[in-house]
Simulated assay, not measured.
Amino acid sequence: MENVNWETNHSGQSGFILVGIFSQSKHPTLLCVVIFIVLLMALIGNTVLIFLIHSDTHLHTAMYFFISQLSLMDVMYISVTVPKMLIDQAMGVNKISAPECAVQMFLYVTLAGSEFFFLAAMAYDRYVAICHPLRYSVLMNHRVCLLLASGCWFLGSVDGFMLTPITMTFPFCRSREIHHFFCEVPAVMKLSCSDTSLYETLMYLCCVLMLLIPVTVISSSYFFILLTIHRMNSAEVRKKAFATCSSHMTVVILFYGAAVYTYMLPNSYHTPEKDMVVSVFYTILTPVLNPLIYSFRNKDVMGALKKMLNVGPVHQETIK
Rank of each mutant, 00 (worst) to 15 (best):
M1D: 05
E7D: 15
H10F: 14
G12T: 13
H27Y: 14
C32A: 12
L43N: 01
I44T: 10
G45T: 03
T57P: 09
H60V: 01
T61P: 12
F66Y: 11
Q69N: 15
P83Q: 08
K84L: 08
M85A: 05
Q89D: 06
A90I: 06
V93M: 12
N94Y: 10
P99I: 02
P99H: 05
A102H: 03
A102W: 00
L107V: 13
L107P: 02
V109P: 00
V109M: 00
F116M: 08
F116I: 07
V128W: 04
C131P: 04
H132Y: 14
L134H: 15
V138M: 12
H142N: 14
A149S: 13
L155T: 01
G156T: 00
D159A: 09
M162A: 06
L163G: 03
L163W: 14
T167R: 02
P171R: 04
F172T: 07
F172H: 05
S175I: 02
E184P: 06
V188I: 02
V188R: 00
K190H: 02
S192G: 09
S197H: 15
M203W: 08
L212M: 06
S219M: 12
S221P: 00
I225H: 04
I225G: 07
T228Q: 13
H230T: 12
H230N: 13
S234F: 10
S234G: 14
E236Q: 15
H248W: 02
M249I: 02
A259C: 09
S268A: 10
M276T: 12
V280Q: 12
F281D: 12
I284P: 05
V288S: 01
N290E: 12
P291I: 04
I293K: 09
M308Q: 07
L309D: 08
V311N: 13
G312K: 01
H315E: 15
